[in-house]
Amino acid sequence: MLYPSIDVLMNKLDSKYTLVTVAAKRAREMQELSDQQIAKPVSFKYVGKALEEINAGLLNYQRPEK
């Protein structure tokens, strides 16, 4: 089962597309720089760690205004 759940994550961001984009970008960043903001993550994979950071409120995304 996915931790954190998709239902909880959808409360943090506005769409699934945004969720995937932010998590993937952060996962690539963690892989390149070897940094993480969560002290003891549940997940071993970078995408899982990025989702945990989103759930903890450490990552957010604001749409640019037109």
Rank of each mutant, 00 (worst) to 15 (best):
E32H: 04
Y17E: 13
A39L: 13
K16L: 09
V42W: 03
V20Y: 01
G48T: 14
K16N: 06
Y3P: 01
P64M: 04
Q62M: 00
T18Q: 11
Q36V: 14
L9A: 01
L9S: 04
G57N: 07
Y61I: 07
I54C: 02
S5A: 10
K12G: 05
Y46N: 09
V8W: 02
F44S: 04
V8T: 10
V8N: 05
A27Y: 06
K49S: 04
I54K: 00
K66V: 09
Y17W: 01
F44K: 11
N55E: 10
P64D: 02
Q37W: 12
N55Q: 06
Y3T: 12
V20H: 01
M10A: 02
S43Y: 02
P41D: 08
P4T: 07
L33E: 13
K12P: 08
G57P: 11
I54W: 01
M1V: 15
L33T: 15
E52M: 01
I6Q: 06
S5V: 09
Q31Y: 10
L51I: 06
V47F: 06
S34P: 00
K66G: 08
Q31S: 13
K49N: 07
S34F: 13
V47E: 06
G57K: 05
D7Y: 07
R28T: 15
K49I: 15
E65R: 04
M10Q: 05
V20P: 00
L9R: 00
D14V: 12
R63C: 02
M10V: 00
A56R: 05
K45F: 13
R26M: 09
A56H: 05
N55G: 07
N55S: 15
Q37L: 15
K45C: 10
Y17C: 00
K12D: 08
Y46W: 09
T18L: 07
K66I: 11
E29K: 12
Q36N: 14
G48F: 10
A23Y: 14
E29Q: 15
Q31N: 13
Q36L: 10
S34M: 11
S5E: 14
T21W: 07
E29T: 12
F44N: 11
M10D: 00
A50S: 12
L33A: 06
K45E: 14
G57D: 11
Q62A: 00
V8Q: 08
T18I: 15
N11M: 10
A23P: 11
M10S: 04
I54R: 02
E52H: 03
L2T: 14
S43R: 13
K66C: 03
R63Y: 03
K12V: 14
R28L: 15
M1A: 11
V8M: 06
D35E: 07
M10W: 00
F44A: 09
V22Y: 02
L13M: 07
N60L: 02
A56Y: 05
R28V: 12
P64S: 04
E65M: 04
P41R: 08
K16R: 11
L9Y: 03
Y3V: 13
Y17T: 10
P64W: 03
M10I: 06
V20S: 05
G57F: 08
Y3E: 08
D7G: 12
V22I: 15
E32I: 01
D35Q: 02
L19F: 05
A23W: 12
L51N: 03
V22N: 03
S5P: 11
T18G: 03
V42T: 09
D14M: 08
L13I: 15
A23C: 09
